[in-house]
Amino acid sequence: MKLKVPVEITINGKSCSGEVEPRQLLVHFIRENAGLTGTKVGCDTSQCGTCTVVLDGSTAKACTVLTVQASGSSVTTIEGFADGANLHPLQEAFWNNHALQCGFCTPGMIIAADAILRNNPSPTREEIRQGLEGNICRCTGYQNIVRAVEQAAETMGGG
């Protein structure tokens, strides 16, 4: 596979360009080319959600998007969620509610939770659980993640 294609993706507001194989997965571009390792590879089959990022305003599982598909797009990863030293309300709520243990699913989980709240600022507990269905956590049994999303909804003005 010798052919390489130029790409340019804006990640967390910063332009990242490179020459990549057409088959390269976006998650590998983010991790290897852009050096942002907060986005994880958990399953390769878009089941677990550890690679979830925001792609042009919608969540996407970056293990199932080709880098070339995302060229010209804007991506936000977990590293782009805090505003300097100020944590995003979801990050704060995850911390307050012990919504993480090993932390490996957390970046994807926070981004999935953000999508829930963007679409529905005052979700019910049931709606939160359904909204997190595409992200697997093996440590927490999800309960504190649900609590965290509820708390973030309140601080973000929904709730």
Binding site: R31, L36, T37, G38, T39, K40, V41, T77, I78, E79, F81, A82, L87, Q91, F94, W95, N96, H98, L100, G103, F104, T106, P107, I110
Partner: peptide, 21 residues
Amino acid sequence: SGIRRREDPRLITGRASYTDD
């Protein structure tokens, strides 16, 4: 007392370093 974990800031900001990172 159920104080917040000191592990969390690096984990919720994507700054923790796992082996594959």
